[in-house]
Design a protein around this nucleic acid. Structure first.
Lengths: 196, 196
DNA sequence: CTTAACTTTGACCGATTGGTTCATGTTTTG
DNA sequence: CAAAACATGAACCAATCGGTCAAAGTTAAG
């Protein structure tokens, strides 16, 4: 058995809080003091538990990716029409990312800060994008099998378009006012699916 | 007439250099020392000439926006087929943003750092996005008049999709390896234009 | 030539960054 | 109880951040 007192905080909960900070502010702009305040722990505890700021970020990034991929996959594979699920997801994002307090996608937001620098971070990011692409691709294939989407199109290519577009939406939503731009993008994307 | 010695550097050239640094690194990560080194000037000269780091960034952002909008508009309104011009532009971006040293779009890269914070910066960013949307929209309209694109589609909605998609491409290109993802996105976007 | 206007350089500023160390306190095992 | 194992908060660290200031140097006008 382990001796000594237990942690006064739940590392999982604190990690979620850290994720929120990195999500909203980005890696660089998320200062240690801000992280500590939101996580509700002391500096020493952070370094003992997670290593350092970058390691914490990596864990938070992974946490985000798992959370997000699972949520999206579940929504898209919900019972009923695959195409309707896809449309609903896009339209939800249109509304969500247009809200002023929306802070986009944690991965997209943080791509700027790293990219060239850290290969470990880049790897997690690429893995997330690939998983998301696969989720989209599977959903489109299901829609094709259900006869809702033309079999003439290449599902993977459309999935890749959706991935780029939604990342763009999440990014631009951080600065845009109003839903107009995102609305047009979603409308066009849906049109491509329905008649493509 | 002004007395005293002239500046030993060209403010326009130095601004271009600053733009490159902000473009590659983003606002936060672009340190004063890096900026000074690349611009080849002293700290005092920077503050006397441009104000402060944020004002310099604002000028660099504006410089970038003007440069980029003009270049894109010129390409899209080149003589010949409007649709072919659009396709060529997208395919060029696919190649360009897939290169490892590609650093995406300066506006997109820097959206993460500001957004909520600085309204002056957000304004320049929104203005750039709107101008780009208009340029796309005009090009699509020309393609419709030339009979290359179906008149059934709403040009602005497609322009908005292209804007989101290309921003997403520029962003993801910073971290991706290989052209596959961007290639699929471009293929799908072109398909939408050609048959939509 | 003198002087006023201007630029440049480098030292300097307080604040904050991410990160470490230490002394103290707490809890559980033996 | 004693002691080992653990967590904690505050003090502390060098480095760097953006930004300022004063002294020295340079050029043009009078």
């Amino acid at each position: 058995m382990t001796r000594g007192p237990n942690k006064q905080f739940d590392p999982e909960v604190a990690l979620s809080k850290a994720m929120e900070v990195f999500w909203a502010k980005g890696y660089e702009a998320a200062s240690l003091s801000e992280l500590l305040k939101q996580m509700g722990i002391g500096k020493k505890s952070l370094y003992d538990t997670y290593g350092n700021k970058q390691a914490l970020f990596l864990k938070a990034l992974d946490h985000y990716a798992n959370l997000q991929v699972k949520a999206i996959r579940d929504r898209l594979s919900a019972p009923g029409s695959p195409l309707a699920n896809l449309k609903a997801l896009l339209q939800d994002w249109q509304v969500h990312h247009a809200q002023p307090q929306s802070c986009g996608c944690m991965i997209g937001t943080n791509i700027a800060d790293f990219s060239t620098d850290d290969e470990a971070v880049a790897k997690v990011m690429r893995a997330y994008l690939t998983r998301l692409e696969d989720v989209f691709c599977a959903a489109i294939t299901r829609a094709q099998k259900a006869g809702e989407v033309s079999s003439a199109i290449e599902p993977r290519a459309i999935a890749q378009l959706l991935l780029c577009t939604t990342q763009g939406m999440a990014l631009l939503g951080r600065v845009l006012e109003g839903e107009a731009l995102l609305g047009g993008a979603v409308t066009s994307a849906i049109a491509l699916l329905e008649q493509g």
